[in-house]
Write a protein that binds this DNA or RNA. Structure first.
Lengths: 172, 172
DNA sequence: TCTGTAACTTGCATGATGCAAGTCAATCGA
DNA sequence: TCGATTGACTTGCATCATGCAAGTTACAGA
């Protein structure tokens, strides 16, 4: 009855979620990406209970997204700083922000990503840096990669079957 | 002792997470985005217990990401189809996939996004469609929007203070 | 009638989340 | 010098979420 761990799945999305998929984790990363580093800063910014915050920070340190760094001996005090892996999570948070603004901000946006050279609000879209095309384009397709395990191949078979079914439906 | 709801926060990321932040939700969306629509397809693809799946699907329907559609009366059977809001979540999942591949795929990628006109693997990056620049560029900054509440403004003050501290540290 | 399929419920265990309160070491202000 | 404050946590529970196993309903086909 333990929460089933996604880390064992051979899917990059599942593996990623295993590190950041718990309640609070992504909001903590949001704050860290905006420059917060201290325990009590997170605590006040989020309104999270200190025991939860301690657990989540330990989890993020554990997952290699955040580093605990002493900024003072005597008394011992710590900064929580993003690692390269944590900083690289930025695009996911930005994509989430854009999606949230599009769908859950009826009174207008309460957060924006701004180009400070122009002062204009950004409109984030995912693009393939190889071809330059938007990833919303239907020419893009998610496919099994070389390292896919047998469990994942079974999943692909399910997906293929569903696709066949959809085609049959649209023909009728 | 209820899990604190993020929906009340005036932050698009928090509001979004309130809909998709639970265990399994994003993986269900991943599958739906790949074309799965049936209860037992999700069940088999994910290896999730049916009660959990039922709860998560109900939550997603509730959040407006998925629609329940009867594909057969007598016997009553349902398809779970993505709404516009759910389909729009695609970029978040793709960003997560890219991040996962970069950091949690030591044996190589087990999933890829492929341009089927060229057969080449895509390298997704977030771009501002207004200026065309990569959102990883430090000229972009997250800022309070017009609809930010007083709670959010307090958060901004915390962030500003942290920023001042970081600057003081880097000067020394 | 018996088996199978699709889409679920129900009944518990156990783990995760959360509030309140306490701890500990050091520094500050009077 | 002594109480107040700061920063970073821990401890003790209560309750909610998650998960496994098993049962249910409604029909179709053999």
């Amino acid at each position: 009855m333990k929460r089933t761990p996604f880390a064992a799945m051979s899917c990059p999305i599942a593996r990623g979620l295993d590190r950041v998929g718990e309640w609070w984790s992504i909001l903590i990363l949001r704050d860290a990406l905006q420059g917060l580093t201290r325990f009590d800063e997170f605590e006040r910014s989020l309104g999270i209970a200190p025991n939860m915050l301690a657990r989540r920070l330990a989890g993020l340190v554990d997952g290699g997204l955040v580093e605990k760094r002493a900024y003072s001996e005597r008394p011992r005090r710590y900064d929580y700083v993003l690692t390269e892996r944590g900083r690289d999570f930025r695009e996911v948070v930005q994509a989430l922000l854009a999606w949230g603004n599009r769908h859950f901000a009826p009174e207008g946006p309460s957060m924006l990503i701004v180009d400070r050279t122009t002062g204009l609000a950004a409109e984030p879209i995912l693009v393939d840096s190889v071809s330059g095309k938007s990833l919303a384009d239907p020419i893009f397709e998610t496919r099994p990669g070389p390292a896919l395990g047998s469990r994942g191949l079974a999943r692909q078979a399910l997906i293929a079957a569903a696709r066949v079914r959809h085609e049959a439906e649209s023909r009728s």
